[in-house]
Design a protein around this nucleic acid. Structure first.
Lengths: 128, 128
DNA sequence: TTCGTTGCAAATGTTTTGCACCTGA
DNA sequence: TCAGGTGCAAAACATTTGCAACGAA
């Protein structure tokens, strides 16, 4: 593995994600960090987000609708994406890891992980 | 719902996807159809793929790695994406729809559907 | 005739990358 | 010192869209 050198920008990105629970996009991270680092570039944000998610220090969420989102919470958990307002919420649910065994039954490859996203209407949008 | 008018291009796209089981990308659909319709445009391919998947006549697969893929098989089933060769395979497995109930337990919104993808090494790549 | 569909090209939105300079170890 | 990190700008990718011409009903 590559040797990492400390960088204020990278630390700030990690720190920022740790305080947010709304799964911001790269562009949101960029705009917010601009207030502390007026010269930080979008390229740096993308480079660090991808570096951090490669190292499993943050989570990258691709819902298949709009840009990728990022999550500072690396504990295993699941996400819900609202089909109306497009916000992404954390779900508090028991583990469903057993589905990997189910999938492995008739499969000759090696299943290492899975990603599940749930979709529908969020508590707010359901009221209309 | 909108009234659809017959189009040879749209039929050919649907027909093409029905014969393939490797989940081609829009660009692959485009290149292959070019042989039958030398003037078909990428825009038309994208328009029809998105129209067909809105109507649930085909499936759109976003693995979060590379461009979207499309599947002519609309029967509920699951996909496996190889982290080495990036091919996408069908999994033959029993239904795991019950995970929607699990997810709904502590959630006030309405869960309408879910998407699960499995990742790892495919039978071919596992040998190296 | 009407209105959905097409081809083409330009535009958009997201993410990656080349490069010269900067910075941490 | 030197390898990794940064800012900037351009490029790469994937996808969408405006528009005039075309074609199905």
């Amino acid at each position: 593995m590559n040797t990492l050198k400390y960088s204020r920008q990278r630390e700030a990105i990690k720190e920022f994600l740790a305080t947010r629970h709304d799964h911001p996009t790269a562009d949101t991270v960029y705009s917010e960090l601009r207030e502390t680092f007026p010269n930080i570039s979008l390229g740096t944000v993308y480079r660090n987000l991808s570096l951090l998610s490669d190292r499993d220090e943050i989570l990258k969420i691709s819902t298949g609708d709009g840009p990728d989102r990022f999550d500072g919470n690396t504990q295993p958990h699941y996400h819900f994406a609202c089909r109306n307002c497009h916000q992404v919420l954390d779900l508090e649910m028991e583990s469903i890891d057993h589905i990997e065994k189910t999938a492995a039954k008739n499969f000759n490859g090696n299943i290492e992980t899975h990603i599940t996203h749930f979709y529908g209407l969020c508590p707010t949008c359901i009221q209309n």
